[in-house]
């Protein structure tokens, strides 16, 4: 159950990245999982190859990736704003492929798998009879902290409110004096940083490799279940998907673990396409 919740938290973090970008720019970022992968690799370089401490490497990696996300928006995604959604999806898929191929070309990274040591490795915490690995607890705690920070940011700060405005109506926000383009770049930066944190938290549990970004595909069910475009929805959706996965691994025959999330996804889309917390849109003529 706790493991399920921890895995769910990773899904939640990746889904959070989707939702942030989708909410603001209406882009579904299929490269989110690959941002996570890149973040994990950079953290691996800093910690394992250069010997930095975990607590310094974490924020530094997040900043590097935020800059990367910013640059990605400036270089690529700014050009496709206003084009059909489909075109934008294709661009993100392409970027994801390039990142995956690019990472496996870097000499020190390559196609091998790696792991990093964290302060949480190989330690356990006891709650009465239950023994929980600290790695899993760190994931849950990290997710919780990040969620609170993001929630406060979007509710309290000027910038967060500007981002909300830009997401609701790009033109109106622009007329109100919000620098929409800059705001979009920032959203990409934040989203990349969130993905990085997810990647670093995930690293001790899973291994670091070029294809670890495929976890992004698992985060889709989470995002859809919560309703694309809802931040609490993404978190709740991620948790539910993670727990469902663990339960189906325990109680259902082999093979259901990998597809349970997608069966839930299809069911949600059929029954309630706007998800648990989503809002639906209709055009009146």
């Amino acid at each position: 159950m706790i493991n399920g919740a921890a895995v769910g938290c990773i899904y939640a973090l990746v889904a959070l990245g989707f939702v942030l970008i989708y909410k603001a720019t209406e882009v579904v970022n299929f490269a989110q999982g690959d941002l996570l992968m890149l973040g994990a690799f950079i953290a691996f370089t800093l910690i394992a190859l250069m010997g930095w401490s975990y607590w310094i490497a974490l924020p530094v990696t997040a900043v590097i990736l935020a800059a990367f996300g910013w640059g990605l928006d400036r270089a690529v995604f700014r050009r496709v704003i206003g084009q059909p959604q489909f075109a934008i999806i294709m661009v993100t898929i392409g970027i994801g492929i390039i990142m995956r191929a690019g990472v496996s070309m870097v000499p020190q990274w390559g196609t091998e798998t790696y792991s990093i040591d964290t302060p949480f490795s190989n330690k356990v915490v006891r709650f009465g009879d239950i023994v929980v690995a600290q790695e899993y607890l760190s994931i849950i705690a990290g997710t919780a902290i990040l969620c609170v920070v993001l929630y406060l940011f979007f509710r309290r700060s000027r910038l967060g409110i500007a981002m909300q405005a830009a997401s609701q109506n790009q033109l109106a926000a622009y007329y109100m004096g919000i620098p929409v383009k800059t705001v979009f770049s920032m959203i990409w930066g934040i989203s990349a940083a969130v993905a990085t944190v997810a990647g670093i938290l995930l690293a001790p549990v899973s291994l670091i490799e070029a294809n670890m970004g495929l976890i992004g595909l698992k985060a889709f069910p989470a995002a859809v279940l919560g309703g694309f475009g809802s931040i609490p929805g993404a978190v709740v959706g991620g948790l539910i998907i993670g727990i469902i996965e663990q339960l189906s691994a325990a109680y259902l025959p082999d093979g259901f673990k990998d597809v349970a999330a997608y069966i839930v996804l299809l069911a949600v889309l059929v029954v309630r396409p706007e998800g648990l917390f989503g809002e639906s849109m209709r055009k009146k003529v």
Partner: peptide
């Protein structure tokens, strides 16, 4: 996107 994701699933 919902359709794209559903076909993916």
């Amino acid at each position: 996107i919902y359709l794209a994701i559903a076909t993916l699933a």
